[in-house]
Structures are given as C-alpha cells and as structure tokens.
Design a protein around this nucleic acid. Structure first.
Lengths: 101, 101
DNA sequence: CAATCATTTAGATATTTAGCTAAATACCAA
DNA sequence: TTGGTATTTAGCTAAATATCTAAATGATTG
C-alpha cells in the first residue's frame, strides 16, 4: 500500500493510470503521450509494476500494459474508508460498522 | 492536488492525518507518537500545511493541528471518481447493515 | 529577569527520485 | 543474416526528500 501511494505521488504516473483506465496500451503508445524519454517512461512503468498497479503482457516485441483497477481501488477506497469518506448517506452505516467492532 | 498526493506518499504523514482524524492535536502530542525527532516531524507538518491538508492554530507556545477533511476528500474522491470508482464506504456499510440485522 | 517549554529554523548528510544519453536485448521482416 | 522496431538496462547528474543535531524564537512561569 505504501508502494501504491508512492507510485501515485508522480503526476506522470497518475496520468498513465488514467490512460490505461480507458484501454490497455503498449509502452510505446503510452510513452508517446508524454514529453519525456522512453527510458524515463520505462522507469515509471517499473514503479507502477512494483506497486502492482499494472500488469505487463509481452506480445512479441511489444509490451501491453493494463490497469489493475482492483488494486487501485483497494488502496484508494481502503484509505478513504479509514477517514470515513464516502457519500454522506453512508455516515450512519459507518457508525453502525464501528459500533460492531 | 499534486501536493496532496506527494504529502500522502509518506507513511508518517498518512499516520498523522489518521491521528488528526480523531481530534486536533498539538505538534508535540503528534510528535510523541513517532520515533523521529521533533524537527523531522515539524518538516512533515510543513508538507501537510503546504498541501492544505491541515490547519495550524497557535495558542501561546503550542500549535494545534487540525485535519482539513474536505481537502482530503476533494482530492481522494475526485481521483476515485476519475477512475469510476464507486462511493468507497457503500459496500462495507451494506455488509455492516446485513450483519446487524 | 532568568529558566524552561514548545516549536521551528539552520545547516549538514544520506538516500531516493526523475531525468538524460548510450547501449543492450529481443523480436520481426526482408 | 542484416537491418529496423520496441523496450529495457546501465550509468550518470541534478534535484528533492528524510533525517539528524544544534541553535533560534517565542511564550510561560518562578
């Protein structure tokens, strides 16, 4: 989870995740969207992989990256929940849950 | 928003926010919860202030920090929404309710 | 006023991070 | 096999970050 937050700390990486949210893309396609070198992008991909936020699938010479939305969700929603965030309607339920534990 | 994510990248700072979620605390009280020096904590507080995640109120010699939950919410829920994530708390609450009844 | 308490600032160091270019690797096609 | 495309690895630099101790600031108290 710490790795996820570290990964999210960089705007380039957040943008990569947003792009991947729409469809899987190859490393090259992703790199084309940014004004940095491909090796730099490759390093960003490595951070995202280590955070388990993306999945890399090699097809021949190209590597397709795919967002692992559930991992992102677990981190973000888990964190949000620790702060009692959410639709206002849920406030009572959170309290109910806390009362249980 | 970038500053918020940068601030959240450090586990000590996330923990500070969680402590402040329960009640406002002074810099000293907060510092006592961690195994790092007070100057180090002071630097963490500065990062949180610059991200506008906390509010600092000086009363005499002490400074009381208070979580600005709405700022945290705007960042986290805004981000979650960009990924089409649902209201964070909902699923858990439903389960809590079911457990209750 | 002098001592003390709470917190920050200053200054130093070590580690991490983001970026680059050049080179290596792996694959595909002619 | 030769050349080209896709991507990563290696090696480097510059900047940012996290940490420390020592000192400064400012408020409180004897």
């Amino acid at each position: 989870m710490n790795r996820v937050f570290k990964a999210l700390a960089d705007p380039t990486r957040r943008r990569v995740l947003e792009l991947l949210r729409q469809r899987p893309m190859t490393a090259g396609e992703l790199a084309d969207q940014f004004a940095v070198s491909k090796p730099t992008m490759s390093a960003h991909f490595a951070v995202l992989r280590e955070a388990d936020l993306v999945d890399a699938a090699k097809q021949g010479a190209t590597i397709t990256y795919r967002l692992k939305l559930s991992v992102l969700e677990d981190a973000i929603l888990g964190f949000a929940q620790a702060f009692g965030m959410g639709a206002p309607v849920e406030a009572a339920s959170v309290q109910a849950k806390e009362t249980l534990s």
